[in-house]
Simulated scan of single mutants.
Amino acid sequence: MFDHVKFGASDFAASKAFFLQALEPLGVVLIGEGEPTYGIELCHPKGTVSLCIFQTDEKPAHLHIAFVATTRAQVDAFYRAALDAGGKDNGPPGLRPKYHANYYAAFVIGPDGHNLEAVCHAPQA
């Protein structure tokens, strides 16, 4: 759906550590890094879509970013990893039937207040 998403972080070091830990269960890794004002690029090792984060003093509006999980276990692991990395609960792993019968997701609030989601659309294995 998109090539990359780039947003600013008020505490680059904290955001970098948070996203590396929270997205590791989804197979996302650091693929590029520059000065904090340039930031980092995160992606699946052979992926084509990336998330970029950079240092800024500007206060951006909060974002909602949903990351693809191929299994419900990945959603659960993302949620635990994100909380362990300092994220705040915004909805534990579970079905969200108001979206569709197999919408299994978890939500956390990241260091800059962004609503981050991992979602699996597959039925229970």
Rank of each mutant, 00 (worst) to 15 (best):
63 L>Q: 08
44 H>T: 08
47 G>L: 10
42 L>E: 04
63 L>P: 00
28 V>Y: 03
53 I>P: 02
59 K>S: 10
53 I>C: 06
45 P>L: 13
48 T>K: 14
31 I>R: 03
35 E>D: 14
56 T>H: 11
44 H>K: 15
51 L>V: 05
62 H>F: 09
54 F>I: 08
76 D>S: 05
53 I>F: 10
39 G>L: 11
57 D>V: 04
44 H>Y: 13
82 A>P: 03
41 E>H: 03
46 K>P: 01
34 G>R: 05
73 A>T: 04
60 P>G: 00
65 I>E: 14
35 E>H: 12
44 H>N: 14
34 G>C: 04
70 T>F: 13
78 F>S: 09
25 P>K: 09
71 T>Q: 10
32 G>C: 09
62 H>G: 11
79 Y>R: 10
27 G>N: 06
58 E>A: 01
40 I>R: 11
65 I>D: 14
57 D>R: 02
36 P>G: 15
34 G>L: 08
33 E>M: 10
59 K>V: 09
50 S>M: 06
74 Q>P: 03
69 A>N: 11
55 Q>H: 12
45 P>C: 11
29 V>K: 06
66 A>T: 06
67 F>I: 02
75 V>A: 05
53 I>G: 06
68 V>Y: 04
81 A>S: 13
68 V>G: 05
38 Y>E: 13
25 P>T: 07
77 A>N: 09
82 A>Q: 12
46 K>Y: 14
70 T>Y: 12
61 A>T: 00
77 A>S: 10
81 A>Y: 01
44 H>P: 05
48 T>P: 04
72 R>A: 08
51 L>A: 01
76 D>H: 03
67 F>H: 02
38 Y>I: 08
48 T>L: 12
30 L>F: 11
73 A>H: 02
76 D>I: 02
57 D>L: 12
59 K>L: 07
49 V>N: 06
31 I>T: 12
28 V>G: 06
34 G>S: 09
60 P>L: 11
77 A>R: 05
81 A>L: 12
70 T>N: 12
55 Q>M: 08
66 A>N: 04
71 T>R: 10
67 F>Y: 07
37 T>G: 10
31 I>K: 07
73 A>E: 08
70 T>M: 14
26 L>D: 02
78 F>G: 01
49 V>A: 04
26 L>S: 02
76 D>P: 00
65 I>Y: 08
53 I>T: 04
56 T>M: 15
41 E>P: 01
34 G>H: 08
40 I>E: 11
